[in-house]
Design a protein around this nucleic acid. Structure first.
Length: 349
RNA sequence: UGGGGCGUGGCCAAGUGGAAAGGCACCAGUUUUUGGUACUGGUAUUCGCAGGUUCGAAUCCUGCCGCCCCAG
């Protein structure tokens, strides 16, 4: 009997093609739309209805069963509340990493399993094998960075067939060939499920704007901002300070509600050669960090950023980098790779 | 109120007689399943104000206003 796979259909091309491929491979496929967010925001209409419609139409086109899971409450608690709390603490969180950890590969997985599924599948660009995760063949699209906090057990029950594709064009070609309504749909951006809203517009729903000082590298007050919480390290735009050279955020003081800026691209506050991690999550056997292969270990501190050679001390959480990295930001994640395998990572303090 | 300097779009700043560079900011777009970065494009009929000289001035002259520095 065919294995039952529940595919997370977001209403985009990637998940559509994922479902199509699995069906073709003989799986008993059910498409599931996760309703995680439906609230409109100022100047931005939440696309959930449209996405839901597209997901359903794809399911109909493919002739697979379809259902919707409503995880709004949980998404709000695990992802949105986490995000707000982190911002309030002066950090810059990555909500999509949390979404994968808590919603897609925990809540969705467990719900699907108890619903009769044997496995789940998603349209992520990553390769899975026996609970191990490897970078996608399409290095431009590789999404392992967002998946490093998923557990080995969850990965063992997941499929990500798009990891084998070298280009996005091939994926779209399949969608076109099958005449799927999502074939030409633009790739989604912004916070997963919430959409392309400015982070500032989003946060303003939950925190009050408070005027504070913008101070440059010489200690001079350059102007005012509406809340240090809205800014992140390395940020250039949105400060409304002009005059000669661009200013980049080099630091912030949440207590004083001040943000520090610099025009010096080499400012030492913008470059780090060492990181300290917390909430470390290693996907498979931690012993791998004790082996001699460590000189091949590399890390990235941002999606799609080049890999940087490094050393990592699992006990202390300290990462020593071979090259300096710009605008390393507390709350963001550092993810380790060894020969194309994603080992896990941690959150930068 | 002796001497000197300055006043060009929100900011910095070229241009000193031929019909307003550039940068920052801002806006739009591209890239991107976080934030951010980067890239492309857009933005002054007008040069503190008022007169004058000139075929023609932001550029020369006069007056006024404002600011800065030195001196007293």
């Amino acid at each position: 009997m065919a294995k039952k796979v529940y595919v997370g259909l977001s209403g985009g091309v990637d998940s559509s093609v994922t479902a199509a491929l699995l069906k073709e491979q003989g799986y008993d496929v059910t498409g599931v739309y996760m309703k995680n967010w439906s609230q409109d925001l100022p100047g931005f209409e939440c696309p959930w209805k449209e996405d839901y419609q597209d997901a359903k139409r794809v399911a109909v086109q493919l002739g697979i069963s379809f259902k919707m899971y409503d995880f709004e409450k949980e998404y709000r608690k695990e992802v949105v509340d986490y995000m707000i709390a982190e911002y309030k603490a002066g950090n810059t969180p990555n909500p999509d990493i949390m979404c994968n950890q808590e919603v897609k590969f925990k809540l969705f997985l467990n719900t699907a399993l108890s619903d009769g599924a044997d496995m789940i599948a998603t349209g992520h660009y990553a390769k899975l094998s026996n609970g191990k995760m490897y970078m996608a063949d399409n290095l431009d699209k590789d999404q392992t960075y967002f998946l490093y906090r998923v557990t080995e057990d969850a990965l063992k029950k997941s499929l990500m067939p798009l990891g084998e594709f070298k280009t996005k064009d091939e994926v779209r070609a399949i969608a076109k060939k099958l005449g799927l309504v999502t074939a030409d749909k633009k790739d989604s951006q912004g916070i997963c499920f919430v959409g392309k809203v400015g982070i500032r517009e989003f946060l303003e729903q939950y925190v009050e704007a408070k005027t504070g000082k913008i101070i440059d590298q010489n200690g001079l007050t350059m102007g005012q901002h509406d809340g240090a919480i809205f800014y992140t390290i390395g940020q250039r735009h949105g400060l409304d300070v002009g005059g000669g050279l661009p200013y980049y955020v080099s630091g912030k003081n949440m207590k004083k509600n001040e943000i520090h800026v610099t025009t010096n691209l080499d400012d030492k506050n913008l470059w780090r050669r060492q990181l300290k991690l917390t909430s470390i999550h290693i996907i498979n056997d931690k012993k791998i960090f004790n082996t001699l292969t460590l000189n091949k270990l590399s890390v990235r501190t941002r999606y799609r950023a080049p890999l940087i050679s490094c050393n990592f001390d699992l006990k202390t959480g300290v990462v020593d980098l071979k090259d300096e990295i710009r605008a390393v930001t507390a709350g963001q994640s550092a993810v380790f790779y060894l020969d194309g395998q994603c080992l896990g990572g941690g959150i930068i303090v």
